[in-house]
Design a protein around this nucleic acid. Structure first.
Lengths: 328, 328
DNA sequence: GCTGTACCGAAAATTTCCTTCACGTCTCGG
DNA sequence: CCGAGACGTGAAGGAAATTTTCGGTACAGC
């Protein structure tokens, strides 16, 4: 074992370093070493000199840490010289330390990502803030997936048709669902439909009396049993309007008066995580689907309306702010 | 004499990475982005110049390929200069191209090991409703992931501390962000804090004048340049209140007056999918994180308050049948 | 004890990266 | 329509990294 690595590395691999101009694809000759670095270290350890073993060991023990070091830093850390670090890199199959470092960074990222799926647990009082973010994001993602999977396309399609053809749309929601109702209202208004959100039960009922056959009433309630929302829907239903319920309990009282029922998903709630959180996510997805569906059906009028509202808002933004942004 | 063993032990203990504490980068301000690079590119793209956008685009499109390129190579590939590449790296939050390249390698490895995320197609006018649901759900999930990855934990933590200790909290938001402001307000009220949402710019300003040192003002604006929201935040800032900005454009004007900046993710928008949709999802996640964080810190008072509000609401639900709801 | 081989690290040589500066281009105001 | 100013851009020079070269040291065999 003389200068095996030296000649082999230079002659055996490509004559020129991997820095060919094009990132199009891998040449496919020698994938340097994706993840099996630790194994390679063990395999090649016997053929290494003592100094090189120290370097290899450090690299295998803490890829992330070593990736943050320059060749000089790693040499210092392992008590060796830069030349040795480069020699080790060569032996491990890379053209130089630079590429080893790149592979190291990749390995670190992989290890990091593999660590994440520990988010199944509930949110605890003493969770660090980073865990809270991860768990919340994960939960809401789950909620979205569940909602999408559980949506009845036939019901959704029917609801969209009703909305698109509606003369007037009334939307009921109180509490957290009230915000969702407002969201839907804003969206529908933007594409030229006539929609109103009602959070006040009395006003909702008095308005519901006005509804007729071509109109649509939408009730949003997670529990499916919010009287303040059911009551106006009942009135609208009896007046002959088409009624839609967005609820997490399709078997609840609200469904009695709903022509079309859109089911939102129900996630577990905990002490720190009230139901309002995931139900809102779920409701909003349903609302978005309704909106897009309606926008598709009324594209001729919706598209210009969307552009127009965008234009109108542009003037509310201060055009540009330069100077203060230059952080250095 | 072998100095091998002696030096190895000593160096191993003392070795501290400390990657070149250059005067160029402020220490501790910006932790480099781990994997949320694509999201960051989207977030910062609007504030980039044309050349920088080309670089950012290339990087986002092919992390693996770009990781194999030197700064000169990438400059050539994108038809720009090395200086531009370095500038782009800086803007993305790295001290230089070297570190961006490292992150790129990590990202590439993660993508490789993970699954290939497809379904990137836009929503078309003639998509069947089932596709709309799938695409929307996927996009929102992506938005959540991006937001969580891009959130600055230090800023979030600081904002939570400020909120938890606040005497009074004012929250500003107009348009779609107004609903988010209301959502946050409702949540904070539930755990016994004193919070107000303001959608009326005039009232917001007149209220902001009342704020003092122990108070907190929160501005929510996707564009980061909504004058109606910036103005009250400026007043609060000058009054000595702690100010928080939740924005998709951390480089926007709103940040001038924000002590803590929470960045929401920016997803691509299409004709049928206005920006309000994904920005709302992102903002709500941030708001939820704030809420949970505050609830943790004030657990002693928050937990009973949450239970109490739950109890109070139970009576608003009709237990079984429709019946007539009791009018108070 | 001497010589040769393997190993190692300091410093030169080279590549890569970063900074500075000057030139083109665009915008705004007169 | 034109000038002043600001901004974006790339080229060249300088700094830092990486790689190579080369000389020195330790050990084994004779």
């Amino acid at each position: 074992m003389k200068e095996i690595f030296g000649t082999a590395g230079a002659a055996g691999a490509a004559g020129t370093p991997g820095t060919s101009g094009k990132p199009g694809g891998l040449p496919g000759v020698t994938p340097p070493a994706p993840a099996a670095l630790a194994a390679k270290v063990r395999t090649l350890a016997p053929s290494m000199t003592r100094s090189m073993q120290r370097v290899a060991e450090a690299v295998a023990a803490d890829p992330a840490g070593c990736a943050a070091l320059t060749v000089t830093g790693l040499a210092e850390l392992t008590g060796t010289s830069e030349a040795t670090v480069v020699r080790t890199s060569r032996l491990l199959g890379y053209p130089g330390y630079r590429d080893l470092r790149l592979a190291l960074a990749g390995l670190a990222a992989q290890q990091q990502s593999g660590r994440s799926p520990a988010v199944t647990a509930d949110i605890a009082v003493d969770d660090p803030i980073a865990d809270v973010v991860a768990k919340l994001a994960y939960d809401e993602q789950q909620t979205l997936a569940d909602t999408a999977a559980g949506l009845d396309m036939a019901q959704l399609s029917a609801a969209v048709s009703a909305l698109a053809a509606a003369r007037r749309i009334d939307i009921y929601g109180v509490g957290a669902s009230g915000l969702v109702a407002q969201d839907l209202t804003q969206k529908l208004l933007r594409i030229g439909l006539i929609a109103h959100a009602h959070s006040d039960p009395h006003l909702a009922v008095t308005n519901a009396v006005q509804l007729r056959a071509k109109d649509v009433a939408v009730a949003i309630t997670h529990s499916g049993s919010t009287g303040d929302v059911i009551e106006p829907l009942r009135v609208a239903f009896e007046r002959g309007a088409t009624t839609v319920a967005i609820t997490g309990r399709p078997d609840g009282p609200v469904s009695q008066y709903a022509d079309h029922i859109l089911t939102t998903s129900t996630a577990r709630e905990s002490e720190l995580r009230p139901a309002a959180m995931s139900s809102r996510t779920s409701q909003l997805l349903v609302v978005d689907c309704l909106f897009i569906g309606v926008a598709q059906r009324t594209y001729e009028t919706a598209a210009p309306a969307l552009s127009a509202s965008y234009e109108a808002l542009a003037h509310r933004h201060t055009p540009r702010n330069s100077g203060t942004t230059s952080r250095r």
